[in-house]
Amino acid sequence: MTSKIYGDDADELISVYTDMGKAEQMGAGGGGGVGAEETSSSHSHEKAIEHFLHAHSIASANHPGSSSETAKTAEVVANGYLTMAMSSAKPALTPDAVEDALRSSETYFTEAADIFLLEKGINHPDTIRVTEQLAKINIKLKDFEAAKKYAKTVLESKIEVYGDMSDETATSQQTLGTICLSQANFEEAHKLLKKAQHTLTQLLGPNAKRVKDIEKMIVIIEQSPQMRDKLSKEKHLHNRPAFSNNFKVK
Rank of each mutant, 00 (worst) to 15 (best):
A170Q: 01
G30W: 08
S3Q: 10
R129K: 08
K90P: 00
D213R: 00
K230T: 11
I221M: 02
V76R: 02
N123R: 10
T94V: 05
E160Q: 11
K136F: 12
D96M: 05
H236T: 08
K195N: 11
S42Q: 09
K142S: 09
F247C: 12
V76T: 11
D100M: 10
I139H: 03
H51C: 09
K216P: 02
E168K: 13
Q183Y: 07
R228D: 14
E222T: 01
K195P: 00
K120R: 14
S41Q: 15
I14N: 01
I179Q: 02
A151I: 07
E106N: 08
I218N: 01
K250W: 00
E188W: 04
S88D: 06
K209I: 07
E145A: 11
D229R: 08
G32E: 08
V249M: 11
S172N: 12
E69D: 08
V130A: 12
H238M: 11
K235L: 06
P95N: 09
D8M: 15
N138Q: 03
L181S: 13
G35Y: 09
I214Q: 01
F247S: 14
A78E: 02
H54C: 06
A113P: 03
V34A: 13
A146N: 10
H51P: 05
Q223R: 06
G177A: 13
L155V: 04
G80A: 03
M217Q: 08
T175I: 10
R103D: 00
E38K: 10
Y150D: 15
A92C: 09
K212L: 13
P95R: 04
T73M: 09
R210I: 14
E132H: 09
A28Q: 05
N185C: 09
R240V: 12
Q183W: 06
M84K: 15
A113L: 09
I179G: 02
M20Y: 08
L53M: 15
L200Q: 07
T171M: 09
L134A: 05
Y81Q: 07
S87I: 02
N62L: 06
D9F: 07
K191I: 13
L176H: 04
L203C: 05
L141Y: 04
T39W: 07
T175L: 14
K235N: 03
S104N: 15
K142E: 10
I58R: 04
I139S: 04
F243I: 03
D96W: 01
E168N: 13
M217V: 03
E50R: 00
D213T: 01
E46R: 14
S87G: 03
A184G: 06
L204I: 06
D100F: 05
T169C: 03
E156F: 06
S66D: 12
K212N: 08
T127W: 02
M217W: 00
L176S: 09
K4Y: 14
I139P: 01
V16G: 09
T110L: 07
K194F: 00
E111L: 15
D11F: 07
K212A: 11
Q133M: 15
L118N: 12
N207F: 07
G32S: 09
R228S: 15
D229W: 00
P95M: 05
A36Y: 02
K250Y: 01
D9C: 01
E50Y: 00
K4L: 15
F247L: 13
S157R: 06
H56P: 04
F247Q: 12
A113D: 11
A85C: 10
T2G: 12
A85N: 05
K142V: 10
